[in-house]
């Protein structure tokens, strides 16, 4: 008898709590989140394609000095009070050692010198060849770093912990 009452009571309760028990994201939260995202885009005028390009260029730049996890890289614009901030979160696999960096920079300098000599070339061709070279360089780094990584234990750091955050402030 007591159980019967208890179950009845619970049923009545659950009836009145139907709305609350649906613990899904409320319409209000969905609206707020969607709005925040869309306003961010409205305010910056940066298209997804441009953002993607910026992301890739940043990776290329930083890859010269650090071995990065490209897949997990996260680039976002966020609103903080009155300022807009560029939030960049990059998992660093390891920092490259000086020798590697020197090699890359040297190769880059040589490339630049070569380009300045080949001034007859079309501008478009120039930029194309530059981009191609960049990609090749990156691939080489990845291979060479694997070998060196085992020797340089000092520099190798934990994958998960080492997340670099770079914040660039832009005016609104």
């Amino acid at each position: 008898m007591k159980d019967l009452f208890a179950s009845l009571y619970n049923k009545v309760l659950s009836f009145f709590h139907q709305a609350e028990s649906k613990d899904k994201e409320s319409a209000k939260d969905v609206a707020c989140n969607r709005l925040k995202l869309v306003l961010m885009q409205d305010r910056t005028n940066l298209s997804p394609a441009i953002m993607e390009r910026m992301r890739n260029e940043l990776i290329d730049l930083l890859s010269k000095y650090l071995e990065l996890d490209r897949e997990l890289l996260d680039l976002n614009l966020a609103q903080e009070d009155d300022q807009m901030a560029l939030m960049l979160s990059i998992p660093v696999i390891r920092a490259k050692d000086e020798k590697e960096i020197e090699e890359i920079l040297k190769a880059e300098d040589e490339e630049k010198n070569k380009e300045s000599q080949e001034e007859d070339d079309d501008e478009n061709n120039d930029t194309d060849s530059q981009e191609d070279n960049f990609e090749e360089e990156d691939d080489d780094d990845d291979f060479s770093s694997d070998d060196d990584g085992e020797e340089n234990v000092d520099i190798e750091e934990d994958n998960d912990e080492n997340i670099e955050e770079i914040e660039d402030n832009e005016t609104k």
Binding site: A19, S26, A27, K28, D29, A31, C32, L35
Partner: peptide, 11 residues
Amino acid sequence: IESNDMMSVED
């Protein structure tokens, strides 16, 4: 607003 179906004034 109270039922979380509409954005609040604060939002």
